[in-house]
């Protein structure tokens, strides 16, 4: 059964989109990630224009982050103050990101930059995940105790001025790295259509030394607002949010996520992470191949002025 996507301006098989949404939702539930960094490349592989894939991906992340954020809000496992400071940076970053996005689109380099950024991020994150999980598996086989990194010595981050106390997170830290982190993630959200949790969570743990119990809730809190903001701004500047595509992905995604969570609880952490790492690397590799293979036609036509 085909369905016409009004903004992407093409007909797609609805079951392919449902399958994509459900599969990514399942993975995001299993691994506790937003899934934006998988949805956007998959849409691009399925010939959805990257402009639409990115804007629609941001919209889809709103839906997939909401239920998680509600849970954390109920349990009180989120730092509102820290989240708000991150959010200020995030909104500024998203604004700058959209401006860069529109500029790249006018220059005809948007598709390239989106692909390149995905190759770099997916390659790095996938590679690190795989290495870390393989090491963990080796240690487990040799029955060595898993050594957690001690949140010990103060790094350069703690010597910056404008310090602020975050009671919930029990940290006393300069707002500069917090705003900067939010800003960076905001740019990624608007250019790549991701929530950015896969960078935000490790950065909060290792850089800001935020306790792990509030990290995910706080990150989801900021992701919802930044992706919501990005969706609205993409809709008003690039007219590229495809609500039909987004809705199919959301519905399939949130259902898939529920089953993913159940499966995820039964499997072992290292193996899961190794699996996700491999998947992330595979998606990155597929994008990289598309960049180097000689295109079927080196010419392309774009109609209209765009802004």
């Amino acid at each position: 059964m085909t369905i016409y996507l009004p903004i992407a301006e093409l007909s797609v098989n609805i079951f392919v989109i449902l399958g994509m949404g459900a599969a990514v939702g399942f993975l995001s539930g299993m691994f506790g990630v937003g899934g934006g960094f998988l949805i956007t490349p998959l849409l691009i592989f399925y010939n959805i224009p990257p402009v639409v894939a990115v804007a629609t991906g941001a919209n889809q992340v709103v839906a997939s982050s909401v239920s998680g954020a509600i849970t954390h809000f109920r349990r009180g496992t989120l730092d509102l103050k820290l989240g708000t400071i991150l959010l200020i940076g995030g909104l500024a970053g998203a604004t700058v990101g959209i401006w860069i996005f529109s500029l790249l689109r006018r220059l005809g380099q948007l598709d390239l930059i989106i692909s390149l950024m995905y190759v770099v991020f997916l390659g790095t994150v996938g590679g690190l995940m795989l290495m870390e999980s393989v090491n963990a598996m080796r240690r487990a086989r040799r029955n060595e105790p898993v050594t957690l990194r001690k949140p010990g010595q103060h790094s350069w981050v703690h010597r910056l001025p404008l310090k602020m106390r975050f009671k919930k997170s029990t940290i006393y830290i300069s707002v500069i790295p917090v705003v900067a982190l939010g800003f960076g993630i905001g740019i990624l959200t608007s250019i790549m259509g991701v929530g950015g949790g896969f960078i935000m969570v490790p950065a909060m743990i290792y850089l800001l030394r935020v306790p792990t119990n509030v990290v995910v809730g706080t990150s989801l809190f900021q992701i919802i607002f930044v992706t919501a903001y990005t969706t609205v701004v993409q809709a008003t500047t690039n007219y590229s949010v495809d609500i039909v595509l987004a809705f199919i992905l959301m519905v399939a995604g949130v259902i898939g996520a529920q089953y993913g969570v159940r499966v995820g609880q039964k499997l072992r952490g290292e193996q899961l992470r190794a699996l996700l790492g491999l998947l992330v690397l595979a998606v990155g590799l597929r994008l990289a191949i598309a960049l180097v293979v000689t295109p079927a036609d080196v010419y392309s036509v774009v109609v209209g002025g765009m802004n």
Partner: peptide, 30 residues
């Protein structure tokens, strides 16, 4: 076509509605 028109003629409302739809879907599922 009604969706395309809405996206181009009332982009802000369209964007807000897209976010609202996402919030309802995410909340509804939970």
């Amino acid at each position: 076509q009604a969706i395309t028109d809405a996206a181009h003629e009332r982009p802000f409302l369209y964007g807000v509605f897209a976010v609202f739809l996402a919030l309802v879907t995410g909340w509804g599922a939970s």
